[in-house]
Design a binder for these strands. Structure first.
Lengths: 204, 204, 204, 204
DNA sequence: AATGAATGAGGCTTCATTCAT
DNA sequence: GATGAATGAAGCCTCATTCAT
């Protein structure tokens, strides 16, 4: 229900404009990359004057970092919220997977920007620090599952990176139109990615 | 005296310089991205004058496409060469995997450039066409394996993208220093990625 | 409660704010120059909003001219007030000198702004006209003194400019920390500058 | 004789262009000040493209410092060259004075730029260091003359600043058209400025 | 073929000024 | 009157590309 914000105060209007700019920036950056995007382009897409961007962000770099953090926070929140702390490992895995998938389907540009681009040249320390939260979180799950014997032994980080990589590979294929991400595909993918880490003793 | 390289013809010297430029360009592009790299930077790293670049490439875009094709061709050749056409599927999978891994270890910048960057904004049609060869090749293997019942049923493309994605995830983690790619890790990763596509009937 | 200033009428409050702005502008202009100062900087230093400046001055140029005239008027008033119309020339000289020195010591930023900056690019006709009053006044004194034989013959303007120049040189050295302007120095300087214009017949 | 450079090597042509730019910059800066001058203006006046300026100077600030140093060096050289080390103080004073006057007459814009503008906002340490050489040199002369009893006792720096200030005042008046700097005027000015520092015992 | 100075359009950012609140 | 967000022209500087040597 959008009716929840019927009267907008001055400050919420300002926040709105900031968000409009962030959305325009996301859209430009995901299509053309950070260095491939001109600041006036972002302004034009946001429907404001170029100078206005500089009331909200001190520089283009600050802007891209704000975009990055906004959405990294959003995906983290979504995954954490859906996570069942006391469920069996298999179910936890599914929950994280669905959380990420829901996010990626709801905010395809945000996901593509976060995961399909190389940000190392312009992200600041705080943004880089953020990047590791989901991964640490994921690594924690894998580690506990390893202790319970349900997941392969060996480098926890490797297993987690393989799963995230597979997920990103799927999303990239979707983003670039090579696959359609319907429920059958999503289910198959989830199962296949579980198999990446699942401990399956050879049958006798 | 230029006579120091007697065994090389004039044309092969020219090729050398072209390669020097391509190497410098690869190095710059992988660190700073295409739009983040200035042409004189590439020239400086290559040890030639700026104008010289334009004797070998008509534009910066042509240059980045040449870099892309050179290395996409190289990785394709390496994988095709190592591929055993008549071996069992499991062995074929391992061969492709090892081929890619060997390439990525031997040419880390090239691999990072090819797979960890988003090129859509500047690659031309021919380069884009090239991108699909490895994937089509991989998809062919998967498809045949599906027919033989050794691989999960369902979207061939999805399975292949999951495997490539997992591989890229591993390489990105390595590139960014989160894992060390020793043999134990590589073996575990290969096995885990095979499990992505392996058909494992539930035990009764 | 705004009632804290009961003795001041509305209009004098407005004048106060105008003066606050003029003071802030003086401070900025003297440190960074006219073109080196941004209008919002002046507003910030004055403690008002940027838009408020434009209630008091139609433009940045009008503002700098107002600053100039305010202080040029002030120094003129101070010098004229202290001037003894019927005293001997030597005493008149001393009075003018002390008047200028008092002003420069009391309002160092104002003096530095008036005399140590080059205003030709933005002063309007009225401001430029003002600039010559002190000098005409000074020239008048010198001219009468020449008639009385106490001052060197020759270009009145030159003599007056030399004295003003010497005074400014002293103040610049003080402003830039090369000399301390104590009473001994001031007395020596006054005597030395009188010698610039004093008619001293060679001893026989 | 300009014929001394009949064939210009590549490097001397480059120096020529650098000098053309420095001259254009001097001309702009002296008329409109540093912050009041736009870089493309300088380029236009120099007859080159804007980008060309940046082959010779890394920034506008570097450019203004180069202008400053070029001319500060030139005036120093001129004064030092004309200085007679073993002559009587009165003659040394005259030599310094004439050296400065010759320079100011030959290069009026350079002199106006050096002495009639306030550079503190953009000069770098090296330029500021340079500024004190002429003054230290002048102070040395005054100090020796004080020791010989020909010059007033008291703050050496003050006396020197008064003389320089008077000289600058004269030049400013000339620059702004209030006096014509013919030989009669110059001679009178020189004598008057000597009187600033001359020790004249009161007649009994 | 090789050079690198030169170009000028375009990039990021600033800033004098306006105007809705 | 007072505010400060908004504007967009203009500022400094970069950079892909050209061309005389």
């Amino acid at each position: 229900m959008k009716a929840a914000r019927p009267t907008r105060s001055k400050s919420s209007q300002a926040s709105d404009k900031r968000d409009v700019i962030l959305d325009a920036a996301l859209s430009c950056f995901v299509q053309q990359g950070f260095h491939g995007t001109a600041v006036p382009e972002v302004a034009k897409k946001a429907g404001v004057a170029t100078g206005t961007l500089y009331h909200y962000f001190p520089s283009k770099e600050a802007m891209v970092n704000a975009v990055y953090r906004k959405w990294k926070e959003a995906i983290a929140r979504q995954v954490f919220t859906a996570f069942p702390p006391v469920a069996p490992v298999r179910e936890q895995f599914r929950a994280v997977w669905r959380g990420m998938l829901d996010f990626a389907r709801t905010h395809p540009e945000a996901f593509a920007f976060l995961e399909l681009h190389n940000h190392r040249a312009y992200l600041d320390a705080e943004s880089l620090a953020m990047e590791n939260r989901l991964k640490d979180f994921g690594a924690g799950i894998v580690k506990r599952a390893q202790a319970e014997g349900e997941v392969k032994a060996g480098s926890t980080t490797l297993l987690m990176e393989l799963v995230f990589g597979a997920f990103n590979g799927m999303m990239r294929a979707h983003w670039e139109g090579r696959i359609a991400l319907d429920d059958a595909i999503a289910t198959l993918a989830e199962a296949a990615c579980w198999d990446v880490i699942a401990h399956r003793p050879e049958p006798p």
